[in-house]
Design a binder for these strands. Structure first.
Length: 246
RNA sequence: AAAGCCACUACU
């Protein structure tokens, strides 16, 4: 099962979807039972490529051939495909369709929608989606917060982004390396270098591992400011951590 | 060792 999945997944990632699909057809003909995961990776790959018709075909095929009902991952994959192409109307419609079929949403599919709203600059809709999610009994995850924090940062609302980063603790969550990297990059981009450095230190204190993009943001900002020694020190530190410069 | 190896967030 895992081997089939990784094989199909590998083919999909290599954009050899026709082969992946052919393999599935062959398996169906031989009467080999296919997992829902195998179908889902196919939906994901076609969705990312924008072949939405194909996705709907697969939704039907999986039911007809294997009696598999699409689950939240099947829907999530296609909703994500729509969202990444900016097709929010279709994404919302599909989400509603899923709910009407009694497939329970989870935090991840909400996050997909929330991210799409943020990327379109629809912060109000994003927040509303978070409220809807909470009301239906689903708690936000750190990804939910990171998504909102990024959305706010991009629109220059760093104050609120920073505030959210504090408030996520009220939900029993802890910021992760991505939370810090988003904020550090945002502060660097607005030349609030001191603030960025403070966050970097805080991150260290919490034992969160900076990534190469965390360093990249700090080092390039320091270079811009002519703080070559600081930049070099950070560069050394990055190398010591076996992170490659990007 | 166990887990994980089907969809979500920074950078790419």
């Amino acid at each position: 099962c895992i081997t089939y999945n990784s094989l199909i997944n590998g083919l999909c990632k290599l954009q050899r979807m026709a082969e992946a699909e052919g393999m599935i057809k062959e398996m169906v003909e031989k009467g080999v039972s296919l997992s829902i995961e195998a179908y889902n990776v196919l939906i994901d790959a076609y969705g990312r490529a924008g072949y939405f018709e194909k996705c709907f075909d697969i939704f039907e095929e999986m039911q007809e051939d294997m009696g598999l009902k699409p689950n939240v991952v099947s829907y999530g994959s296609l909703v994500n495909g729509f969202c990444k192409k900016g097709m929010l109307v279709e994404a919302e419609a599909l989400f509603q369709d899923m709910v009407s079929r009694d497939v329970q949403p989870n935090v991840r599919i909400y996050n997909i929608l929330i991210d799409a709203y943020c990327k379109q600059g629809e912060l109000q809709k994003a927040r509303k989606q978070v409220e809807d999610m909470k009301r239906s009994g689903i708690s936000p995850s750190i990804v939910t917060y990171n998504t909102l924090i990024k959305g706010l940062s991009v629109r220059g609302n760093l104050t609120e982004a920073q505030d959210l980063a504090l408030r996520l603790r009220d939900e029993g969550l802890s910021p992760d390396a991505i939370t810090y990297t988003i904020l550090i990059s945002a502060y660097c981009n607005t030349s609030s270098t001191q603030k960025a450095i403070e966050l970097y230190k805080e991150m260290e204190k919490l034992g969160l591992r900076p990534t190469s993009s965390t360093y990249h943001a700090l080092i390039s900002q320091m270079s811009i400011e002519g703080r070559m020694q600081d930049a070099e020190n950070l560069f050394e530190e990055m190398l010591q951590r076996k992170l490659l410069p990007d």
